[in-house]
Amino acid sequence: MSESSFGEYSEQVMEHFRNPRNVGVIKDASGTGHVGNPQCGDIMELYIKVENDTIVDAKFKTFGCGAAIATSSMVTELVKGKTIEETLKISNRAVAEALGGLPPIKMHCSLLAEQALKSAINDYLKKSGKPEIAVPKDDHHHK
């Protein structure tokens, strides 16, 4: 069995893994995103609370590796206080960069975080009768 990529995790990834921000569930969420599956080893649930087109709160629950937990934590930090339009500009690369980079094999975790965010926004848009946006696909989830 080969070994893991812990050694390649940045300080920021380890810090967010040790002290994840915004863990939990928003009971009256404006939008919820649920992505991933156990086969691939990660599942993310992202909750957003939107007021006046601005994300005022975000929380997450994640089943997954260190990088999955860190990217979930980071994405909740990045979106808080931003408008929906601003939030839609957050790419998976931006999440990874905010964490000081991810090992190549863990890049899909940042994509999963982007998917979770866009799914949550879509859920919000749908509920408010607005047109939905495209959610990126992660190839390995379709093997």
Partner: peptide
């Protein structure tokens, strides 16, 4: 739970174990 998150936490406590599961194998 997913194995790697457990290994990372045990590693922080000085305990070395491993997993045959997903994240570690590439």
């Amino acid at each position: 739970l997913e194995g790697e998150s457990i290994i990372l936490n045990l590693d922080m406590e000085g305990v070395a174990v491993s997993t045959g599961s997903a994240c570690t194998s590439g």
